[in-house]
Amino acid sequence: MHLHKYEKMWMLIGGGALLIFLIMLGVGAFYQGTKPPSCLTTIDPQNVEAHDSFKKENLGMQQLDDNRYVVNVIASAFNYDFGTDEEGNVVRTIRIPVGSEVMFQGTSTDVVHGFELAGTNANMMLEPGYINTVETTFNKPGTYTFVCNEYCGTGHHYMTATVEVYDE
């Protein structure tokens, strides 16, 4: 089948652009390590406490070293459980110093939930039976909002929490 000269050029430019995009995505994912959240660890959704990260005392923010943290969270309709603070109050706001590298690690005990920190690139799905993780660096102080972005029932739009990034 004959292809018109202009058509060949058009397909070459279009196909070439797609190829360049794909190479960028591939290099980004497999060389620079920015893969989408794809944790392969499974967990019993009826008994998440059996996993160390989701024991009551390990929920919420845990410091790893100077500026690296892990935040453990259990999602259930319609709440994000970040554990309690020293005084025993439920944590609704996580305070993070500016410049921190944070890994969010979560799972669900009931249905599928979303876990998105609006204004950052932290965004992942939390599914019962799986742990998922996403990392982000906080370079700008301010208030950020967690939203559940996967439909989880009638109270889905009330499922939220807050991150406050503060200047030291």
Binding site: Y144, V147, H157, T160, A161, T162
Partner: peptide
């Protein structure tokens, strides 16, 4: 977010 009814979430400026 998509698939969400009206909500002010945490009421932040964002």
């Amino acid at each position: 977010p998509r698939r969400s009814a009206f909500s002010e979430y945490n009421g932040s400026e964002q």
